[in-house]
Amino acid sequence: MKLVTTTLAALLASAALAGSAAAECEVTLRSSDTHPDGYPTVEGVKAMATEAKEKSGGRICIEVFPSSQLGEEKDTIEQTQFGVIDMVRASFGSFNDIVPVTQTMSLPYLFKSEDHMHKVMDGSIGEEIAKGFEEKDLIALAYYDGGARSFYNSQKPIKSIEDLKGMKFRVMQNDVFVDMMTALGANATPMPYGEVYSSIQTGVIDGAENNFPSYDSSGHAEVAKYFTLDQHLMVPELVAMSKASWEKLTPEDQAILREAARNSATVQRKLWADQEKASEEKVVAAGSEVIKDIDKTAFVEAMAPVYEKYVTTPEAKDLVKRIQETE
C-alpha cells in the first residue's frame, strides 16, 4: 500500500505540473518509461500520443513520463495492474514473474532475425500472447524492438562455435544465460554491468554480450574490439495499458488507441534501427571489427539441452515450434 500511495503522490504532482494542456483533454492517460527522453521507446509512445490526439479530435491525451519518473519497470508494471498508472513500456523480461509465456521469449536463438521477431509478434502468436497479459489486468497494445544481444571480446574474432571454447564471458545473473554459455563451450561469469569494462581490461573476463548501442555507450568497444553479430537473444518490449483504464474507454476510443499503438511500433522500430546503425558505424570508425554472416547452425543446435531444460510443457513446446516455423 505504501508503494501505491507513493506512486499516486508522484502522479498527482506530475499532473499539477502538466497544467492547462491536460485540462483540454477529456481523457488523459499517463505512461511510464525507464529510458530517458529521446530514447526510441519513449519517442514511440510519443508518436502514439500524437496520433491518438489527432484522431480523437484532441479528446485523448497521453502524457509520457521518461527516466523512471514514476518508478522502475517492475514497480510501474504493478501500478499499471492496479490502475494507478494508465500505461507502461517495459521489457518482456520484467514480466517473467507475472505472465509465464514471456519466459519462453527469452530463449537463446529463438528468433532468426529482428525481422523474424517482428513477424511473430505482429501475427497470431502475438495476439495469443496478449491474452496472457489480459488475464493479469494488462492490455497489450504494441510490441516494440529491444534489439539483439551479440558477443564481443578482447581476444579474437569469433567466427564459429569452436572459437568460443574456454572463453570467459560476462552474463546477467540468469540461469538461462549461464546454461547457454555452457552449451556453447564457454565459461559464464555473472557480474554487475558496471564491472565489465575493468574486468575485460584486466583480463578477468574475455568479453561480454549486448546490443550495439550498449556496446558503444558503455565504452566496452574500447577494450573489446571484436563484435560477433550472432544475435543470440532478442527480447520484445511491450506497451501495456491498465485493464481498469482500458475499460473506462468507449469502443471507439479503444480502436483509436489500438491503431495508434500499432503504428507507433513502426516508428519505434525505425528509430531503434537507426540507433543501432549509428552505434555500429561509430565503433567501427573507432577500430572495432564486426564479424557478420556467420553460420549460426552449430550455435542453434548447441541449444538443445537448454531448450530441454526450460521448455517443459506441451504448450511451451508448441509455441517454440510455431515461432521457429514462422516465415
Rank of each mutant, 00 (worst) to 15 (best):
S245V: 12
M117Y: 13
M181D: 10
A255H: 09
N153L: 04
E315G: 03
A240K: 00
H35F: 13
V176G: 11
A13G: 13
E63K: 01
V235P: 02
N210K: 07
V84G: 05
A188Q: 07
Y109W: 03
C61W: 01
G38E: 01
L138F: 04
L3H: 11
V306P: 01
P192W: 13
S124K: 14
V311M: 15
A208I: 12
K119Q: 13
L141R: 05
K165G: 00
Y307F: 03
Y39H: 04
I60C: 01
I85F: 03
E51R: 10
N211D: 14
A140G: 01
K309F: 05
V235Q: 07
A304Q: 04
V284I: 09
L257K: 04
G93W: 06
R269I: 07
D115C: 07
L238F: 08
I77S: 07
V4H: 15
A286E: 10
V283P: 02
L12C: 00
T313E: 06
L319M: 12
S288D: 06
G132M: 11
M167R: 04
S279E: 09
T202M: 02
D206K: 05
S245F: 12
H116A: 02
N210Q: 11
L12V: 15
V88G: 00
E325A: 13
A265M: 01
A15F: 04
G19T: 00
